[in-house]
């Protein structure tokens, strides 16, 4: 039985540019259960944001194109929907929070009118009803004096308050899936803690599933149950967040964790991943990580590894674990 809210299978999104094809997302599969938070981590250029945009079908075409794959929401393939049907999904069943609240909010409309927009479209509410929803939502996300703030413009709010307003917009239609693309990257730590707490509380209250995209491993550790580690357009490791972070299988995950300055260990020198993230239009042969990998073998230089189930009980794309390969056709995680 399939209890997954979202099943992404073998999703490929390419960008066709003058410099060649950019393989932004290449065969990415994951699933999100009802009420679960899945964290997607990766460095810039790993394809994590493109994954979110592809699920929402917001990839700009051209140059971008979702080349193949399936995005199943409650069993329905979103990639097969018409433009009109997809519009009913966006903002209704799936909502998104962006990194920079100042650019994501429209500066010439009040916060209230921006919140009211989607209940009016998706739930067919009247102006007055939608306004009541907007005030309720502002209260829910912890904005003081919501009756007054509803008529404020984005520039009148602080960064943290703007991000709260964005969350109010995203959640006002009670979406089944909330996609957060670096929701706290532009915020200070003390404000970040407030926003993460808010997202966690609302998720529990409304039983929403969350896709949390971030480069901050600490944030993922705090909010998600499962984690997808991406590198250069592919999933490198996928499993429970506690297992992946305490006992990483993939050399990339391991190196990433070791290169973070940690207070507890007190090392004088940090672990370094030599080199840099490869260009997505000119990717290396073999394993995408092999030029930077400390444990590379001959096979890594020529053959791309598949995502396989490692003995530790999670998905890993690495030749080190390639005995008796079981490829990820359909995801059925234990």
């Amino acid at each position: 039985m399939n209890t997954n809210l979202l099943d992404v299978k073998n999703l490929c999104t390419y960008f066709y540019t003058d410099e060649g094809v950019v393989y932004a997302l290449d065969g990415v599969s994951f699933s999100v259960k009802k009420g679960e938070t899945l964290g997607i981590v990766g460095e810039s250029g790993s394809g994590k944001s493109v994954a979110a945009l592809s699920v929402m079908r917001l990839v700009q075409t051209p140059p971008g194109k979702i080349v193949s794959g399936e995005v199943l929401m409650n069993g329905e393939n979103l990639l097969k929907l018409s433009g009109k049907e997809m519009r009913a999904v966006r903002g209704g069943k799936i909502a998104m929070i962006f990194q920079e609240p100042m650019t994501a909010l429209n500066p010439v409309y009040t916060i209230g009118s921006q919140i009211m927009e989607s209940p009016r479209i998706h739930r067919g509410l009247s102006r007055r009803q939608a306004r009541r929803v907007a005030i309720e939502m502002l209260e829910k996300v912890g904005i003081p004096l919501p009756e007054k703030r509803v008529d404020d413009y984005p520039h009148q709010l602080s960064g943290g308050m703007r991000q709260r307003a964005m969350i109010a917009i995203a959640l006002c239609c009670n979406p089944e899936l909330l996609i957060c693309d670096e929701p706290t990257t532009a915020l200070d730590v003390t404000i970040q803690a407030q926003i993460l707490e808010l997202i966690n509380d609302l998720k529990k209250e409304m039983n929403t599933s969350v896709l949390m995209i971030t480069h901050d491993l600490g944030v993922v550790a705090q909010v998600s149950e499962n984690v997808l580690v991406m590198y250069a357009s592919k999933v490198m490791e996928y499993g429970g967040v506690k297992e992946v972070f305490t006992d990483p299988c993939h050399p990339y995950t391991k190196a990433l964790l070791e290169s973070m300055p940690a207070v507890e260990s007190g090392r004088e020198r940090l672990h370094v991943i030599e080199g840099m993230v490869p260009s997505l239009s000119n990717r290396p042969e073999g394993c995408l990580f092999h030029p930077r990998c400390e444990r590379r073998m001959e096979i890594c230089k020529t053959l791309r590894p598949e995502l396989i189930m490692a003995p530790a009980g999670r998905w890993v794309r690495c030749w080190l674990y390639a005995s008796g390969p079981r490829t990820l056709g359909s995801i059925e995680r234990g």
Binding site: E43, H215, A255, L256, P261, R269, L270, V272, E274
Partner: peptide
């Protein structure tokens, strides 16, 4: 900078 590059610069 990204985490993996950050550690190079700090070192």
């Amino acid at each position: 900078l990204d985490v993996s590059i950050q550690s190079q610069i700090i070192n």
